[in-house]
């Protein structure tokens, strides 16, 4: 909306400069130019102006709608990219039911060939806390390997591990453990100029 208002204002300014004397709100009666006489002379311009204004407003509205749609698409893409992948206990293999979560990230990474991401592996707290750092690392690496097999260059994917140090859920039960055995995704670069996939 802001955009359309701004462009209308610009157009009006242009008209005003063309019809400088008329535009001046002069209360002094001296050159009360007969509007009737002038009107036909400016008629076409005025019509054109109105038309231009209409077109501009429409274009602006469309642009705004497009921008909003694009912003929504990018937000959706970011959410898809950030979607967490979960793992089985003491395993780093990508579960079948988690593959779709990774697959959904592919069009986004393909639409943004310069984008770099970080995959962080996490574990539950049942193993050795220090050795769990290696398990988290293997999980992140498994995701990277999956992406590489689908054509995403290694250089675009950084892997790290937080082991059991940054749990998503607290508690000593299957539900909490299941939520903590995971890989998380973060955009390292290219997020500002991100394009939504077609």
């Amino acid at each position: 909306m802001l955009v359309s208002r701004r462009s209308s204002a610009a157009l009006l300014l242009a008209i005003v400069s063309l019809t400088a004397c008329k535009a001046k709100p002069a209360p002094t009666p001296v050159p009360v130019a007969p509007p009737v006489a002038v009107a036909p002379k400016f008629n076409k311009d005025s019509a054109d102006a109105a038309e231009a204004k209409k077109l501009a407003a429409a274009a602006a509205a469309k642009a705004a709608a497009d921008a909003a749609a694009n912003a929504a698409a990018i937000a959706k893409a970011k959410a898809t990219l950030g979607q967490i992948v979960y793992f089985d206990y003491d395993k780093d293999e990508i579960r079948d039911d988690q593959k779709a979560t990774i697959e959904a990230k592919l069009p986004i990474l393909e639409a943004n060939p310069t984008m770099r991401i970080r995959v962080a592996g996490h574990t539950d707290n049942r193993g050795s806390d220090e050795y769990n750092l290696t398990l988290g690392q293997k999980r992140a690496a498994a995701v990277k390997r999956y992406l590489a097999a689908r054509g995403i260059a290694d250089a675009r994917v950084e892997t790290v591990s937080f082991g059991e140090e940054r749990p998503a859920a607290q508690g000593e039960n299957d539900d909490a453990w299941g939520k903590n055995r995971r890989a998380e995704f973060e955009i390292l670069s290219g997020g500002d100029t991100m394009k939504a996939p077609k």
Partner: peptide, 26 residues
């Protein structure tokens, strides 16, 4: 190093630091 860098330990003479590092395997 790329990936994780964890679990340091010094040699008894203090001249060597061992640790674990790696990306797909450590």
């Amino acid at each position: 190093r790329p990936g994780s860098n964890i679990s340091p330990a010094f040699s008894p003479d203090g001249s060597t630091l061992a640790f674990s590092a790696g990306e797909d395997g450590m």
